[in-house]
Design a protein around this nucleic acid. Sequence first.
DNA 1: TAGATTGTTAATCGATTAACAATC
DNA 2: TAGATTGTTAATCGATTAACAATC
Lengths: 223, 223
Amino acid sequence: MNDRKNNTTGLPVPTIRRLPLYLSFLKSNKNKKRAFISAPEIARELHIDSTQITKDFSFINVSGKTKVGYKTSDIIKIIEKFLGYHEPKKAFLVGLGNLGMALIKYNAFSKEGLKITIAFDIDTEKAGIEINNIKVFNINEFEENFSKAPVEIGIITVPSDHAQKVADLMIKCGIKAIWNFSATPISVPDNIIVENTSIDSGLAMITWKLNKNKPLIYKNRIL
Amino acid sequence: MNDRKNNTTGLPVPTIRRLPLYLSFLKSNKNKKRAFISAPEIARELHIDSTQITKDFSFINVSGKTKVGYKTSDIIKIIEKFLGYHEPKKAFLVGLGNLGMALIKYNAFSKEGLKITIAFDIDTEKAGIEINNIKVFNINEFEENFSKAPVEIGIITVPSDHAQKVADLMIKCGIKAIWNFSATPISVPDNIIVENTSIDSGLAMITWKLNKNKPLIYKNRIL
DNA sequence: TAGATTGTTAATCGATTAACAATC
DNA sequence: TAGATTGTTAATCGATTAACAATC
């Protein structure tokens, strides 16, 4: 939410968020075997303005050939480099509920430069098991494990009411970035990076769009 | 991505995305038992500008008392009404991988007005099972099930390469809105609502923020 | 060449933030 | 009252889109 003021580089936040989109499209079957692709072609598929694509590419120094387009492998290589796919970052995940489980089983992360090394849960029953080569410990062993093998990123997939507590623990240990999947935003010092990924905002948008055409009456006034 | 041009009502898209945030905070333990809360107080917790909060509230006709703040129960009631929490919308989910499983087990949806009625998978082994009271069918039984008990929303949690095919099927059957969790954006006719929720954009932001301070050199130029 | 596309600069648009009057 | 807060209007800021020159 607070992205704007942290952006000292002049690279627009929405551009960064679009990069994985381009990457995924260029690597998908929809595009396989195309050596070159033009911005208008991508625009047609992704429903993004073609000058915006050109602009995004120029931000990250992808350059193309007039009349021909961009070399697909170039775009892929540069975006992957930009997103650090080849420099694995380690993470601890806390909260082995449904979402936490899904994330530690999500193999795509390894290709995307994210390596979840250990998972934690408050449930002592879960301690000791191993999923997808990721060992599970009780949350009270967090600090000990962190000092043995520190990580940069902490992933929070606990229920909202416990998210802040977990964040505090992570920060105390020295984690640099927190990826918070709980519905409640967490408070952190200025030097800590936070990214909130809550699916609720997606649901809110869908509901909103669905209702847009059947106007909502509220307090005798059309909203 | 294309939200802007679809927004005919003058209510900013970021406002809609913030509503679940406010709701979650106001219902969380951080705030329990407070009858009134002021915008500056919420601002401090959520790290959002307080005038933005005031503005968001005025958009959805939440009004407060000078010097006192807003009545917590009012905000909650109005946001819930706005987000349609009390008008359940039905959905089919396609793709019972890790994420799909997590979503059908995610009980919070029922409180948020989303009811996944049936799930589908391409794997015939999964057909017949029942998870969280949601019956699982093979994907080739989609059409039949839809005509028996139609739904407004289709949720796609299949791998990227199959997302478009599933979307086409949903649209053919008459689904109005598609919530696409795959990494590749899908193409749909103008009258169909799409919301893309890809966790990759969150990861991209984290990577970006982590690397911002150690400047990336690319092509002899600082990016 | 004619036409398509890149890539940059300028204009527009929308969201956030600042300023401030009204109010309790 | 003095001070805090709402709520609106204006200014700013950033992102998108339009325009167009350059190029192949």
